[in-house]
């Protein structure tokens, strides 16, 4: 079984929330991705499809629709830099430059040492604390160069 036993047990409970199996797909994909180092492999898509009585292509269509799902491996840490309007007005491009500078990654790419993937993302809902990025799922707001250095410097 490609899906871990613990995950399957978790999904068995998840299914009780909905009147049909398919509705558990997106929450389940999140969990699969979390447990797989931040991306969803073809094997995992097929396994989840089988678990939810879907065809693999239906899962694939959903995975590629949602920006939070990745179908390729990424670096150990993921920095999502918001570049939407409120952040752009307060220096999102400078944040992006600084993050790229510190990590060695290009926007959308992974640093040569494989530690960081840096991505630009649309509005994350931290507009009144702009500019911001999300590092491994945690929001970091009101960023400036010093703060960015401190945050990224603290990443192991």
């Amino acid at each position: 079984m490609v899906l871990k036993e613990a995950l399957v047990r978790e999904f068995d409970e998840l299914l009780t929330h909905y009147p049909d199996k398919r509705s558990a797909l997106i929450p389940a994909l999140h969990r699969v991705q979390e447990e797989n180092g931040g991306w969803i492999s073809p094997e995992l898509m097929e396994a989840l499809a089988q678990y939810l009585d879907l065809s693999a292509v239906e899962v694939f269509g959903v995975v590629t629709f949602y920006p939070m799902f990745r179908i390729r491996p990424r670096g150990k840490h993921l920095v999502n830099v918001c570049h939407n309007i409120s952040c752009d007005l307060r220096g999102a491009q400078d944040v992006l430059a600084k993050v790229c500078d510190l990590t060695g990654a290009t926007p959308g790419g992974t640093s040569p040492d494989g530690r960081f993937t840096v991505a630009t993302v649309e509005c994350q809902g931290a507009c009144t604390a702009a500019p911001m990025f999300e590092l491994d799922g945690v929001f970091h707001e009101n960023l400036d160069d010093q703060k960015i250095e401190q945050i990224l410097g603290g990443v192991r």
Partner: peptide, 29 residues
């Protein structure tokens, strides 16, 4: 009454109420 949490996955269009329903049903939004 039961209340369940359901997590979206980064698509703005799922804030449109019928896109949200499609997404909740496990489909493209």
């Amino acid at each position: 009454c039961d209340i369940w949490m359901h997590k979206g996955a980064g698509a703005y269009i799922c804030g449109e109420e019928t896109g949200l329903m499609e997404s909740l049903e496990g489909k493209r939004g």
